[in-house]
Design a binder for these strands. Sequence first.
RNA 1: GCCCCGGUAGUGUAGCGGCCUAUCAUGAAGCCCUGUCGAGGCUUCGACUCGGAUUCAAAUUCCGACCGGGGCGCCA
Length: 444
Amino acid sequence: MTSNVDLGTRVENSSLSKDMAGQKVTVAGWLQDTRNLGGIAFLLLRDRTGIVQITCLKKKLGDESFAKLTTMPRESVLAVIGELKLNEQVSSGFEILPESFELIAEAQTPLPLGVADKVGVELDTRLNNRFLDLRKPQVLAVFKLREILIRAMREYLVSLRFMEVTTSKIVAAGAEGGSTLFPVEYFGKKAYLAQSPQLYKQMLMGAGLDRIYELAPAFRAEQSDTVRHIAEFASLDIEMSFIKSEEDVMNLLQDLMVHALEAVLAQGTQYLEELGVEVSVPKTPFPRITFTDAVKMLVHAGLEIQGDLDTEAEKRLGELMLAQHGAEMYFITKFPSELKKTTFYAMRDSSDSELTNYFDLDYRGEELVSGGQREHRLDILINQMEDIGYVPKDFEFYLQAFRYGMPPHGGFGLGIERVLHMMLRLPNIRECVMFPRDMYRVVP
RNA sequence: GCCCCGGUAGUGUAGCGGCCUAUCAUGAAGCCCUGUCGAGGCUUCGACUCGGAUUCAAAUUCCGACCGGGGCGCCA
């Protein structure tokens, strides 16, 4: 009874229902498991959308077909045509009784990673066999949620008339320093992978585009070896003109986060359940705490702070903000100029040059976003570059945009994986990328 | 880049000088079973990362390489 199945008539498992009782349906997917009881066998067929049970009766199929169906290796691709039949004994309430089937692609054994195994698998093994790992619904769930999050962010920005742009990822100079850039051999010239679209976003403000965003990879050659760093990450960058202060940027950002998390809750229930996590939407306005006050708060809590907040301080601040303000997300504002030295385009506070108009958005102690008001006055910008030993001539392509009418502007860069990492409470940020890149991993 | 820790069947682990012909689970191969949904029962298969060293004896100790885990620094 083996035959060629017409895959054009295939229906996804999630669209099967009890209403279709008695209908002949075509399903196709991966054979997750076979439970052979002798005269009857149950196959679990999984596709992207769910699992359906194929119930095989030896008496009905004949010995040969029954044997063929029940001895296929797990994770083989299988197509089945059969009648959808109601049955209270199945957890879904229905099953498919096969009439014909086709083994489309047999899986080799043993699997390098058991999709339905009851034993744990290390992240390294999972990433080495990511295509199999992604067959697990709870792994796929992360990426369904990622998709929902990103789509909601785009929708929100589009609704505010932000224009999506794409800037080059091959650049001649970085936004900050040179040690964090990956060099690229570019037709005999030296180029780099962009660590940020910063300079281009600002040039586009000079072009009069007013409100833009870009969702693109950012590359960092920093030798960061932690559960919250990867060498290539998805960065949502926005830039907007005619702002009064960085408050305008922060207001947009907090509304963006709320909109995105609301979408995750509304559209991602199934996936959140799959992962066993609960997400709560933060209330606006997010608390703002100045960098100086954050330091005071931490010192009061017994920490010693010198210069910037270290990892322990960041985490501790996350706990304190949650305990004292009930806030999972909060802004740390007015970063000292001393700490933003290499950020030559950061505008200093007009009433205290020791401070900048720069902020971070943190989520339970992890930095999600860095942003602020940029310096749009050419002379000051050049001074700030020279202060840290940069040669303005090297940035001529950028500075030109400030000579012919540059409006006041600001923006931010947001790490998509950082949001997912904290939102889903995943142990490692690598889980939020299908094929992550870090100091040691370039394959797959 | 720095500091700790670890590498045992396909996968996840126990063992940490002789009791190891290496544990358990999962898996794979096979047999039994007509209602499984973490199916069950029986049988079988399958591993000490690599290279040196110490020792009568090394999975176990030491050194190196490679690979991995955690933390720090740096940052999204």
